[in-house]
């Protein structure tokens, strides 16, 4: 086993994590993309996506997780999600109203329907997921710093 895998929890936890984490991420993406046709949406899906990264951090330690999604990338995605959301809202002015659903709504219960709602869900997912992961990473790093001082 490579050196970077020394940290973190036991072999059992690591193996189970390796098997499940992809499924968790996939499930999060599913929740986001189906936000407009089934329960869930950007917030719930974003939290699940962030949890898949938190899961890696718990099982393998912070280095491995931060290599997958660094703090600056998380910070970028968070701001980008917010700007993306605002741009969608402002594009509504093409029809005269803030937040106007300006794309054709399509057939109900189809994956490609509901106009701007899936795009809004993706923007919210970026913001919430990256934000939650950044908060978790900040708390973990703070803990390590205090431990080092002691």
């Amino acid at each position: 086993m490579s050196r970077e895998h020394d940290k973190g929890m036991s072999l059992i936890v690591k193996t189970i994590t390796r098997l499940t984490v992809g499924l968790i991420l996939l499930y999060g993406i599913y929740i986001v993309l189906h936000g407009h046709v089934s329960p869930g949406g950007g917030f719930a899906g974003g939290v699940i996506i962030a949890l898949s990264f938190v899961h890696i951090m718990l099982a393998y330690g912070k280095e491995v997780a931060l290599k997958k999604l660094s703090r600056s990338a998380a910070s970028f995605f968070e701001s980008f999600g917010a700007v993306f959301f605002l741009v969608i809202a402002l594009l509504g002015f093409t029809g005269g109203y803030f937040f106007l659903n300006f794309i054709s709504k399509g057939k109900p219960f189809n994956l490609f329907s509901a106009g701007i709602i899936p795009l809004c869900n993706i923007a919210i997912c970026l913001k919430v997921g990256a934000g939650l992961f950044a908060i978790f990473a900040a708390l973990v790093l703070l803990k390590f710093e205090t431990e080092e001082k002691e």
């Binding site: 910070s75 970028f76 968070e78 701001s79 980008f80 917010a82 700007v83 605002l86 809202a89 402002l90 803030f98």
Partner: peptide, 13 residues
């Protein structure tokens, strides 16, 4: 509302 929020997030970006 939109302009200050845009300013805020562009700044963080």
């Amino acid at each position: 509302v939109a302009v200050p929020l845009g300013g805020a997030f562009l700044n963080s970006l």
